[in-house]
Design a protein around this nucleic acid. Structure first.
Length: 437
DNA sequence: AATTTTTACAACCGCCAATGG
DNA sequence: ACCATTGGCGGTTGTAAAAAT
């Protein structure tokens, strides 16, 4: 248990931690707050206001130091606090704010009403760990960090390019060094990418060959950006997704990380119905084979940029064909080989052709799909974003930076994309790919 | 089903700046 | 000017729960 009784002596070097009680012999409590303590503190603030935190112990007998009281009030008891997971919009805001100001949690909190600096800090630190483990850049391509990496502690200078063990790699070294944009002056960075705009011609590249042909993730063709230095370290290997090579290359995007990024960016996101707003921020193709497809074909999908490409790894022609056939059946009005159409609230289409019973069944089945974890989401998003990026047409072939792309998969994706034309009249880009379903 | 790993969260720590006597 | 106090901020840690194996 971490709830402890501690002497009044402060661990704070200047004694500020327990000033209210350090001169007395009151045993100050540490650890989680109880409801009773919360009530006492709330009552104190009600009667005395938010000041003289060290007086709380004197006035109420609450065996907590002033600092702890202030923190408890600020982070948990004060009114108008938002609880629960960050919304996708809030997450985006945090990333943008961090790009602007770095680890200025308190300042960031002023831009997020109802959120505390502690929440934001925790979110960001979790994100850092996650992106580090996945080998993903800290920022999406369309967000440029404007602050110097050396202004905060995630920016330790990278270790010398020796045979450093991957396990010794810090997040700072990983991101600041391996992501070219992180180490650049913003004046050299070209116009940012927009998630719903087609990426530059050479945006697509193969991370598995990036170590030898470094193509900056955010750098359009012709950029004067210097190539990143040799990788001094590798991202921390995940015990659950060992790479097919001894050390991960630059910008490694493990398969299906986009699912993880999206749905696991906050574990509680998908568990809290009141917080979840999946229908407006994501969508999935109800293909029965997509999961196995995605398991067999490495897809590089950057959720933030909405771009993806399939890599040449393990191919399974049967799965590819199955998926395409499902897409064709779906587009033709069928059920895609036993799968369900998009529910009306997601595809924006009229459901008048369905009777009540069918709708209920569909919704139930689709709920199952929504609640599924894993690459289903990735593929659905990939296809959708592909539709967005290509305008729903297979006319525009992406310029692929390497020859290590799974062209079979690419061709299938083009075909699938062509089956779902974009409805540009829809103000809601999240559903436009599905209007013709 | 049991174990391990990851995640989210709460709380603490140490430093620093502002304030007031 | 000096010093003690207070409040604030950012970094770190411990833990329960969830997820993965």
């Amino acid at each position: 248990m971490n709830a402890q009784i501690k002497t009044g002596g402060s661990s704070d070097s200047n004694g500020t931690n327990n000033d209210g009680g350090s001169k007395s012999d009151v045993m100050l409590k540490k650890g989680p707050w109880t409801a009773t303590e919360d009530a006492m503190l709330t009552e104190y603030v009600r009667t005395h206001g938010k000041r003289n935190w060290n007086a709380v112990q004197k006035n109420t007998g609450l065996a907590r130091c002033g600092k702890s009281c202030r923190l408890r009030w600020t982070n948990h008891l004060r009114p108008n606090l938002k609880k629960g997971a960050f919304s996708p919009e809030e997450e985006r805001t945090i990333i943008e704010l961090h790009a602007k100001m770095g680890n200025k949690w308190a300042r960031m909190a002023t831009q997020l009403p109802g959120r505390t600096d502690n929440e934001i800090k925790n979110y960001w630190n979790t994100r850092v760990k996650r992106r580090q483990r996945q080998g993903l850049p800290l920022y999406p391509p369309d967000i440029q960090p404007l602050y110097s990496q050396h202004h905060h502690r995630y920016s330790q200078p990278p270790p010398p390019p020796t045979s450093a063990s991957p396990t010794t790699a810090s997040a700072s070294a990983c991101f600041s060094f391996q992501t070219p944009i992180m180490s650049l002056h913003t004046s050299t960075i070209p116009a940012s990418l927009h998630p719903l705009r087609p990426p530059p011609q050479d945006f697509f590249y193969n991370p598995y060959s990036a170590a030898t042909t470094p193509l900056p993730l955010n750098s359009p063709s012709g950029s004067t950006l210097p190539p990143p230095p040799p990788p001094p370290i590798s991202p921390l290997p995940s015990p659950h997704s060992q790479p097919p090579f001894p050390t991960l290359p630059l910008f490694d995007y493990p398969a299906a990380t986009a699912d993880y990024e999206f749905f696991h960016s906050n574990k509680r996101f998908k568990h809290d119905g009141s917080q979840s707003n999946n229908s407006s921020s994501s969508f999935m193709l109800p293909f029965s084979h997509v999961q196995s497809y995605s398991n067999r074909v490495t897809l590089d999908l950057d959720f933030d940029s909405g771009s993806f490409f399939p890599l040449k790894t393990e191919q399974d022609d049967g799965l590819l064909d199955d998926m395409l056939q499902e897409a064709q059946a779906l587009a033709a009005g069928g059920n895609g080989g036993g799968n369900k159409e998009m529910p009306k609230e997601m595809n924006g289409a009229s459901a008048t052709q369905h009777d009540q019973e069918e709708e209920e069944e569909e919704e139930e089945d689709y709920s199952r799909l929504i609640n599924d974890d894993g690459p289903t989401t990735s593929m659905g998003m990939a296809v959708n974003e592909w539709c967005n990026d290509t305008g729903g047409s297979s006319d525009r072939q992406p310029s692929v930076a390497t020859d290590n792309v799974n062209h079979l998969a690419l061709d299938h994706m083009h075909q699938i994309a062509s089956l779902f034309p974009v409805d540009h009249s829809s103000p809601d880009s999240s559903v436009r790919s599905w209007h013709n379903l």
